[in-house]
């Protein structure tokens, strides 16, 4: 902790290059999702998707101190987590376009993107579905002594599933290296936390499972980085699980079928004014990590990467319809 106390945590503790990459990833998430939305509107991809635009700081900062050995479990709103954990946007787009080059060879789509080689155990179509799985990954790490930590992303709505409560209890009872990261964007679909959840802050749930719980400004990159990396360090030291709640907001509707009847334009605008990307960019500029030119360069490079990713996906290969039952079971090895 060299620099003075007013310097944000991330800037005190991470190399300039790491911070520039983090900003680039946040832009990548934004442009990836805008590109996906646009492709959907133009009828190039089908199904539905859940955009995390507005939540980029939470995704990237929570993954900041993780290595490729560390694991994450993600959610239906998972594109940010994917990119945060190092996924390539080209292969993500290829999945959206249903191509063999996609992360799931076109079988999974938006809600199932995973990259097991980079420790991303996958998005999930089931709310709360990833939470016990994260605890299982942490059990593996402890049992085999790999030193890996698992970061488990979930939404505020998921904290009312039984799986959440059962999983947190086991994580403490067995002192497992897992960090539960709740992205509280105020709503599970249309239902506000006030109407769905008995406690004010989701972090209060931690007390029932005897683990530390913290609520931070999820649109403040440094605040998230500090809370999650401390929890990751704690888990790595063998001191057990933690719960971090990132307060954030999704700018878009829940999915493609949302008429936004449960929230006001004023509320949405107030959160758009707290754009986590601009805040982080300005912070990096204020501390001399980047100047205006560098910031623009990072943004332009991310834009270009997304363009190239879409082109790559469009040129991909369609799966053969004779292979509908492929991947149901392990294939016999020659």
């Amino acid at each position: 902790m060299a620099k003075d106390d007013n310097t944000p945590f991330a800037i005190r503790n991470y190399e300039a290059e790491t911070l520039r990459k983090a900003l680039r990833k946040m832009y990548l998430i934004r442009f990836f999702e805008e590109g996906a939305e646009d492709s959907y509107m133009r009828g190039l991809i089908h199904g539905t998707m859940h955009l995390s635009i507005g939540q980029e700081a939470s995704a990237v900062a929570s993954c900041l101190s993780l290595t490729d050995e560390d694991k994450i479990t993600s959610t239906h709103r998972g594109h940010g987590h994917c990119i945060g954990k190092g996924a390539e946007v080209g292969r993500m787009f290829a999945e959206f376009f249903g191509k063999e080059e996609g992360y799931c060879h076109g079988r999974g789509g938006s809600m199932h993107i995973a990259d097991v080689t980079k420790g991303n155990l996958g998005a999930n179509g089931i709310v709360g579905g990833g939470i016990p799985i994260a605890v299982g990954a942490a059990l593996t790490a402890k049992q085999l002594g790999t030193g890996a930590v698992t970061v488990c992303f979930f939404g505020d709505g998921a904290n009312n599933e039984g799986a959440f409560h059962e999983a947190l209890n086991m994580a403490t009872v067995w002192q497992l290296p897992v960090v539960f990261v709740c992205e509280n964007n105020k709503y599970g679909m249309s239902t506000s936390t006030e109407r769905s959840t008995a406690v004010k802050n989701i972090s209060e749930r931690a007390a029932a499972y005897r683990m530390p719980g913290r609520t931070v400004d999820g649109n403040d990159f440094s605040a998230v980085a500090e809370a999650v990396s401390e929890a990751v360090d704690r888990a790595r030291r063998g001191e057990g699980p933690s719960l971090v709640e990132n307060l954030t907001y999704r700018w878009r509707g829940h999915s493609k079928s949302d008429r936004n009847r449960y929230r006001t334009k004023e509320e949405i605008d107030a959160w758009i004014a707290r754009d986590p990307i601009l805040r982080f960019r300005d912070e990096l500029m204020a501390h001399g990590i980047i100047d205006v030119d560098a910031a623009e360069g990072i943004e332009a490079a991310a834009r270009q990467e997304v363009e190239e990713g879409i082109a790559f996906a469009k040129g991909g290969t369609a799966p053969s319809v004779t292979e509908v039952t492929r991947y149901v079971h392990a294939e016999a090895r020659p």
Partner: peptide, 16 residues
């Protein structure tokens, strides 16, 4: 239905 989960790709989905 095919002996498989329902796939995402629209052609595979129809074939299932």
């Amino acid at each position: 239905g095919a002996e498989a989960p329902i796939p995402y790709n629209p052609d595979l989905e129809k074939a299932a």
